Simulated assay, not measured.
Amino acid sequence: MTSHTLPHCALRILTLPAGDSHTFATADHEWIVLPLSGSCTVTTAEGETFELRGRASVFTAVTDFAYVPRDTTVTVTSPAGGRFAAAGARCENRLPARHGAADTVPIELRGSGTCSRQVNNFAAANAFPCDRLIAVEVLTPGGNWSSYPPHKHDEYHPGEESRLEEIYYFEIADGPTGTPGLGYQRVTPSRPGGTEVLAEVRTGDAVLIPDGWHGPSIAAPGHDMYYLNVMAGPRAEREWLIRDHPDHTWIRSTWPDQETDPRLPLYSARPDRSTHSAHSPHSPEGRGRV
Rank of each mutant, 00 (worst) to 15 (best):
R252L: 05
G222Y: 06
H248S: 03
L241P: 13
A220E: 00
T260Q: 13
W240V: 04
I251F: 13
D224K: 14
P221M: 03
A220I: 13
I218N: 02
P256Y: 10
H245D: 12
P234R: 11
L241W: 03
E285H: 07
R270G: 06
D272Y: 11
Y227N: 03
E285N: 06
P262F: 02
E259Y: 12
A278L: 15
T260R: 14
P221V: 03
E285T: 01
D224Y: 14
L241E: 13
W255C: 01
D224N: 12
N229I: 04
A269H: 08
H245F: 01
W240N: 00
I242H: 08
T275S: 13
P256E: 08
D244S: 12
H223C: 04
P256G: 07
E237Q: 11
E239F: 14
P246N: 02
T249I: 08
L228W: 10
H245Q: 13
P284A: 05
P262S: 04
D244C: 07
G233I: 00
R273A: 00
S277G: 15
E259C: 05
G222I: 05
G222W: 13
T249H: 14
L266F: 10
Y226L: 05
H248D: 01
P284V: 06
S283Q: 00
T260F: 04
D261W: 12
M225I: 03
H248I: 03
L266G: 04
R273F: 05
T249N: 11
Y227P: 03
L266I: 09
S277D: 15
P265L: 13
S217D: 08
A269M: 08
H245N: 09
H276V: 10
R270E: 06
P284G: 02
M231R: 07
S253V: 00
M231N: 06
I218D: 02
S280D: 01
A219D: 02
R273N: 05
S253F: 11
E259A: 11
I218S: 06
R263I: 00
Q258V: 06
E239P: 00
S277E: 15
A236I: 10
H245W: 10
T275W: 10
R270M: 04
S217V: 13
W240F: 12
G222V: 05
S280M: 12
S280V: 00
R235C: 00
L241K: 09
T275R: 15
T260V: 12
S274I: 01
W255F: 14
H279V: 04
E259I: 11
G233Y: 06
R235E: 01
P234T: 07
W240M: 09
T260P: 09
S268P: 12
T254K: 14
G222D: 09
H248L: 11
A232D: 09
I218A: 09
I218H: 00
H223K: 11
A236Y: 14
I242C: 10
L228V: 11
